[in-house]
Simulated assay, not measured.
Amino acid sequence: MSPQIDYVPETGSTNADLLARLLVNELVPEGYWLVADRQTAGRGRQGRSWIDAPGNFMGSTVVRLHDRDPSPGTLSFVAALAVYETVLPLLATPSALMLKWPNDVLLEGAKFCGLLLECERGHAVIGIGVNLAAAPQITDRKVRSLSDIGPAPARDAFASALAAQFATELQRWREFGAGPITNRWKAAAHKPGTPLSVHDGGGTALSGTYDGLTDDGALRLRLPDGTTHTVHAGDVTLEER
């Protein structure tokens, strides 16, 4: 079944719209996407805003959670891989694309994609924003768009390709479990031994080196004293050597 995509000229947040529908028990089928030309209250992780621009992709989809599904948190890897696989054929230099824990997709080392995973009433809502045509000016981090390094794809064509790829990755997640998904994610991510600084969910700042992932997708950070710290939520910065 082909994904269903509804396009709207403007909304506050596509994630908030889908969550509101679920809260009133509206049937939102798996495979449905809501895509906006403009968001006035786009949201990122940890309460950050997501700044849009004309021609960029901003959309959300719904996954119905089943008892036998892998951990819902690993859907962030599903979404990141869907973006990665959709963007990869568009690049003249595939090595310009890299994944960063927990759910970033980097283009030439800069953020160009945002992912937000939220759960409500037995469903996961996954919001994705991709800088196709333009990148916003952000003072505290490097950002890029696909148009910075080549022609930007048309938004609607990108939406169709991403929705199809997400459906493929979701089927693999259900059929084979989270292990193969996280293994593919690791192959496209920063390498073991990469210096990282992490602000975890409790506000603690730690520095060390990337030491892989746990079975449930948490980050393993090797500290300077040789011990390993497990991070389940937080912000990661790749440090310059």
Rank of each mutant, 00 (worst) to 15 (best):
D140H: 14
N25A: 14
A178K: 08
A134G: 02
V83E: 05
R144A: 15
T86L: 06
A159P: 02
W173K: 02
G114E: 04
V8F: 08
G44R: 00
T14Q: 09
L18D: 09
L19S: 06
L213C: 08
S13Q: 03
A188W: 11
E26H: 09
H123I: 01
P94C: 03
A187F: 01
T14L: 11
L213M: 10
I149V: 15
K111A: 04
G114L: 12
D67H: 12
G179C: 00
L146W: 13
L23Y: 00
N103V: 04
Y32E: 02
N25M: 02
T194P: 00
P102M: 04
P72G: 00
A16F: 00
E118A: 09
E30N: 01
D69T: 11
L206H: 13
E120C: 15
P29R: 06
W173C: 02
R121T: 13
H190C: 14
T74R: 13
V198A: 08
F112L: 06
F158N: 04
G193C: 10
V35S: 11
G129K: 03
A41V: 01
D215W: 02
Q171D: 14
W101K: 07
I181C: 03
W33R: 02
V63C: 14
Q46F: 08
T209V: 15
L99Q: 06
L65P: 08
P195D: 01
G234V: 03
G226Q: 05
E240V: 09
T61D: 09
K191Y: 03
F176D: 12
I126V: 15
A53D: 09
G129R: 03
K191E: 13
Y210I: 03
R121P: 11
L19E: 13
A157M: 01
V125K: 08
D37E: 15
G212M: 06
A164E: 13
W101Q: 06
P102S: 10
A133M: 03
G31V: 01
D216T: 10
A36Q: 01
P192W: 12
M1P: 13
L162K: 12
I181K: 04
L99G: 06
G179N: 05
R222Q: 15
F158D: 04
W50Q: 05
K142H: 14
S60E: 01
T228L: 13
G127F: 01
V62W: 08
L99R: 06
Q171R: 15
E169M: 13
A164P: 00
I5M: 03
H199W: 00
K142S: 15
T214C: 11
L106Q: 08
W101F: 09
G201Y: 11
P9Q: 04
P192F: 11
L19G: 07
T139F: 09
V130H: 09
I149S: 07
H66Q: 14
C113K: 07
A16Q: 12
A189H: 07
L196E: 04
S145P: 08
A110Y: 06
K191T: 12
R155L: 08
D156C: 04
P54Q: 04
A178R: 13
H232V: 10
